[in-house]
Design a protein around this nucleic acid. Structure first.
Lengths: 119, 119
DNA sequence: TTTTATGTACGCTTTTATGCGTACATACAC
DNA sequence: GTGTATGTACGCATAAAAGCGTACATAAAA
């Protein structure tokens, strides 16, 4: 089938976004890993094995990320394609996601280094 | 006694601050109320009755705020004086606290309005 | 010294969050 | 049609977070 329809899942408008709901969503390390993955592969899918959690756990994390406004999802066949809502997030909370992504990267570097650079 | 000594409680350095620990601290509405109070009265004390929680609950919230790096506390007699670590926070996470304070204010306005402006 | 005010430490309960497994639903491949 | 892949909904178990009350500690006031 050439023109495959995608169904976007319901999500808050830019105005409805709640900063502290977003912060609560980002407080979980699994969800931060999902965010990092989506940011690196916009429009891509992700599987539960990527994050060491079950399928049902991944479903819940997706919902929390989606309802906070951090991501947009579309059903595409049997898969979900995911995007970070960068433009709307930048518009609503300027600089926030840039800081978040920087700190996610910083933390993974620290992990790779075994924190040896900190002494 | 004219020169009363104050004892600062231990707190993370600017470099040790963890963005996501800060976000977890800000995810709680009681702690946001404490932050708003401290921001409005720097160096002041706060009592548990201000926030509708017990003394022991307030102690725990203080510790979480202090260990995340959001506030500085000094023991002054029988009281604790509190400050937001604005300069260090601005330096480490530019723009973050400005956004946070704006959203705290926005939420309390919405509460006062009974959200009547949203329809 | 006694009393009052402020705060902490501990134990306990309740609530919330996270995790998994199973069963089910849907879309695609065959 | 059957089978496979992907994802959701539910129930249940575990862990984390929040709450309170009591007892205790310290500083100031009386």
């Amino acid at each position: 089938m050439a023109s495959r329809l995608t169904r976007p899942l319901s999500l808050p408008s830019k105005e409805e976004m709640d900063l502290f709901q977003i912060m609560a969503a980002l407080a979980d390390p699994v969800r931060r890993a999902i965010i990092a993955h989506i940011a690196a592969t916009p429009g891509g899918a992700c599987s539960s094995s990527d994050f060491g959690v079950s399928k049902s756990a991944l479903t819940r994390h997706w919902r929390i990320l989606r309802e906070s406004g951090l991501i947009r999802q579309e059903v595409d066949g049997t898969r979900h394609r995911n995007w970070l809502r960068s433009d709307e997030l930048d518009d609503r909370f300027p600089g926030l996601m840039s800081t978040v992504q920087q700190e996610i990267a910083r933390k993974s570097n620290v992990d790779l280094d075994g924190e040896t650079n900190e002494h």
